[in-house]
């Protein structure tokens, strides 16, 4: 676990760069993580997915997988891969400041 300066704020991250404490997250932190992952501009659709991931995580304690995201977030699997080309579930979780989704599907 290391401390990292994101958007002028000290946050705790794991070795893969996922936030350890979801409460240290805010929109500026999200933008900073997104930039590091090659997404320069978080659009409304990006934020729709990110906010959905956060609310699911807060409610259930786990991040939704790609199949669930495609079915329930209002953004299709195809669009998810256009928004987050390097792996939607993983990347959206990282930007949303929640742990990496765990599971094989």
């Amino acid at each position: 676990m290391t401390s990292k300066l994101l958007a002028g704020q000290d946050v705790e991250v794991d070795p893969e760069g996922f936030l350890v404490d979801a409460s240290q997250w805010n929109k500026d932190v999200a933008s900073a993580i997104a930039k590091e992952e090659g997404i320069d501009d978080l659009t409304g659709q990006h934020m729709q997915v990110i906010n959905f991931m956060r609310s699911e995580y807060m409610a259930k304690g786990t991040a939704p997988n790609i199949r669930l995201l495609g079915k329930t977030s209002g953004v299709t699997v195809k669009e998810l891969y256009q928004l987050f080309p390097k792996g939607p579930a993983k990347l959206a979780a990282k930007i949303a400041g929640i742990p990496k989704p765990h599971g094989c599907i």
Binding site: N65, I66, Y81, G87, A89, K90, L91, C104, I105
Partner: peptide, 11 residues
């Protein structure tokens, strides 16, 4: 199928 889907999920 699981391996292909998992690969895409990892980018």
């Amino acid at each position: 199928l699981i391996m292909a889907n998992g690969a895409r999920a990892e980018g």
